[in-house]
Computed example of a mutant assay.
Amino acid sequence: MTRIDLNSDLGESYGQWRLGDDETMLSLVTSANIACGFHAGDPSTLLETCRGAAVHTVRIGAQVGYHDLTGFGRRFIDVEPAELTAEVIYQIGALDGLARAAGSAVSYVKPHGALYNAIVHHREQARAVVEAIRSYNTTLPVLGLPGSAFLKEAERAGLIVVTEAFADRAYTPEGTLVSRREPGAVLHDPDVVAQRVLRMVTEGVVTAIDGTDVHVDAQSVCIHGDSPDATAMAVAVRALLDAENVDIRAFV
């Protein structure tokens, strides 16, 4: 039986500003990439999200990012490696404390936004993130894009690497994500997204933005929680995978 993990970015509300339907998403996914306060998420929101994840037996991942609340972590920051390492350790530790208070713990790490995209190729920052994870807990798996410098550096450092694909993001013919600045970068139709995920999971391919098929090696599929269509897409994906007898479970 084909097996896949479903993950989503959660805990991204801040104060009176609400983003996404975390409670519904936690009933549909198996892993939650929870913000750590640097790109989004205040302490109360993060604790509430960790508690929800614990209730639903959803694995908690620390979604570490650049220190960029104003830009939602979607702007590249040319931060010094030593500083980036310290910032990532700080974020993992903060979320782990909240997760443990909620009766769970951080069980993996996934970078967010601009940091995620930067360390596909930016080897110096990739090493800095890996060093942070290795320093905090060498047993924590890392979630990232197949072929990225981040996963290569993580593997070299002896960390467990988990590859992911994106349900609602367009791909280039090279297998990377189309920039959010480009038209068509984000998909919105739940049925289209569900069929796309089924192909990723069962055939290992996704149709790129130019119409060609690109190989994807995914142990987990991300459905972004901050999209207006996120819940509808998650429901459609989960229903189709269940109907096709795909084994949906966390990778850890």
Rank of each mutant, 00 (worst) to 15 (best):
L47Q: 03
V88C: 13
S31A: 12
S44T: 14
H112N: 13
A118G: 02
M25Y: 03
N117S: 15
M25V: 00
D42S: 09
A86M: 10
Q125R: 13
V129P: 10
R18T: 14
R127A: 12
F72G: 09
V88L: 11
E48N: 14
G113S: 12
G93V: 07
H112A: 09
A86Y: 01
V58A: 01
N137F: 05
S44F: 14
L98R: 09
C36N: 01
A54Y: 05
P81K: 05
L46Q: 03
S104Y: 03
F76C: 08
L26W: 05
V120Q: 03
S44K: 15
D68M: 00
K110C: 00
Y136T: 05
A32H: 02
P111K: 02
G65W: 03
T24Y: 09
A118F: 05
D42A: 00
S27G: 14
D22N: 08
L98H: 05
A128F: 01
R123E: 15
I92S: 05
R134E: 02
Y66R: 07
G65F: 04
T49A: 05
P111I: 08
I34Q: 00
R127D: 14
A132T: 01
V106N: 02
D22K: 08
R51T: 14
A118P: 10
P81C: 07
S27E: 13
I34T: 04
A40K: 09
I89F: 09
I89C: 13
A54C: 13
C50D: 05
R75V: 06
T49K: 04
Y66S: 02
A105W: 12
G65P: 01
A126G: 13
G61Y: 04
E87I: 12
R74P: 06
G41Q: 02
G61T: 01
V106M: 05
G15H: 14
V109I: 05
G41T: 01
A105Q: 15
G52L: 08
S135H: 12
G113T: 12
H39E: 13
E131P: 12
A132S: 10
G71A: 08
L84C: 05
H121D: 15
A82F: 10
A102S: 11
A82C: 11
E131I: 06
E48S: 15
H56A: 11
A86I: 10
E124G: 12
D21H: 08
G97N: 10
S107H: 10
R134P: 06
C36H: 02
D96G: 03
Y136K: 00
Q125I: 08
Q63D: 01
D21T: 07
F38H: 14
H67L: 15
R18Q: 15
G65N: 06
N137L: 06
H121S: 15
G65R: 03
G93R: 06
E124K: 14
Y108W: 07
G103Q: 13
R74G: 01
A53I: 05
R134F: 09
I60Q: 05
L84A: 07
A126E: 02
V120M: 10
V79H: 07
P43W: 09
V106E: 03
V58N: 02
N117G: 00
H56L: 06
